[in-house]
Amino acid sequence: MPLPTDATHTTGEAGAPELLRRFTTAERWIHRTTALLMVIALITAAFLYLPALAELVGRRRLLVTVHEWAGITLPVPLLLGLLSRAFRADLGRLNRFGPHDRGWVRAALRGHHRPSGKFNAGQKLYAAVIAGAVLVMIGTGLIMWFPHLAPLIWRTGSTFVHDWLALLIGVLVAGHIWMAARDPEARRGLRTGHVSRTWARREHPLWEKEQRGE
């Protein structure tokens, strides 16, 4: 019988590990660098866009340059991460919606708890929406960055999409940070790579069961 490779150490007569390995070092650095680039893009966006903040700092040309490069390099950590087998496996998990994910969002909105795998359906949707949004932001951003690439009507439309999608991304990222702020154990997973089995059993029971090799 193959051993559960995610388990770091086993304790106790039941053989239940107290800590489960949730993320590899590579995965944690992918998250950190992506988060840093996203925060830079959002903050520079706010200072370019909101008059009250723009008046504080000026330096428009510099802000634009920082914003453009933070935006265009946002997918780089993820692309480099494809070299990591564990990361590719987690991308696969984020992509697939199993039977237990069906109705998860509706249940969560009503305050019910449904069992989930390593990622719950909300996390999967967040990952997909952010990934799609970043791609759209890069496309529309490039059209605004290099105005001679596209006809005017595309540029006006791109500005429209870029402005409104930026608002949506801001709300989603704020929600993401708010969820993390309420869950120290989830943050520990991304800081150290490990989470407690009790947390996993509560938040991601199907994954926890899987880690027992059942």
């Binding site: 559960p4 998990r93 984020l94 697939r96 919606f97 199993g98 949707l125 199907l206 994954w207 899987e210």
Partner: peptide, 15 residues
């Protein structure tokens, strides 16, 4: 725990 099997590894590619 890598590759095949597990609660999240089959299903619709909604993402």
């Amino acid at each position: 725990s890598d590759g095949t099997g597990g609660a999240d590894r089959a299903g619709t590619p909604v993402g």
